[in-house]
């Protein structure tokens, strides 16, 4: 199949059961997208498919043929961090960093679609992303900061 990730088309061999997350990690070789549960609950595998955040453990790779997939690796522009990344760094919005790629892509979708999000908007937006380290307060602060920048 052909899988377009971060604007690059990859010709890869997949079994029909292969999940998008495994295709991205193992075939395309981009390991910033993480596997936390494979049940669609934790959000660590979040990617953007055709402009919308998606849990890539709940999508068959073949379903993404013809779609534009974006991963965490596309967020920064070279060494220049995206404002959402910078805000998470400044506000200590992560500790171990394992949930971070999913959080960042979810946060980016929110700040791009909702110019001045309320705290409730932020909580709803990151409702599908589990973090076990931070207690979320600093993540909410980071999203708030990113929305303002």
């Amino acid at each position: 199949m052909k899988l377009t990730v971060n604007g690059v088309e990859h010709e890869i061999d997949v079994d029909p059961r292969t999940l998008l997350v495994h295709a991205i990690r193992e075939q395309v070789g981009l390991t910033g997208t993480h596997v936390g549960c494979l049940t669609g609950d934790c959000g660590a595998c979040t990617v953007v498919v055709d402009g919308q955040t998606t849990k890539s453990c709940s999508v068959l790779a073949l379903s993404a043929e013809g779609s534009a997939v974006e991963t965490i690796e596309s967020l920064a522009d070279g060494d220049d961090l995206h404002p959402v990344q910078q805000a998470f760094w400044d506000e200590f919005g992560f500790q171990c960093g394992f949930c971070l790629p999913g959080m960042l892509l979810t946060a980016k979708e929110l700040v791009e679609s909702t110019p001045d999000p309320t705290d409730d908007d932020i909580l709803r937006a990151i409702d599908g992303n589990l973090c076990r380290c931070t207690g979320y307060n600093t993540i909410v602060a980071a999203v708030r900061k990113a929305a303002r920048s």
Partner: peptide, 20 residues
């Protein structure tokens, strides 16, 4: 409170965890 020093690698998805 300087920021976490491993931030850049984690924020960009470059950090290598075990399964990576």
């Amino acid at each position: 409170s300087p920021r976490k020093r491993d931030g850049a690698a984690l924020l960009t998805g470059r950090a290598l965890f075990l399964d990576d």
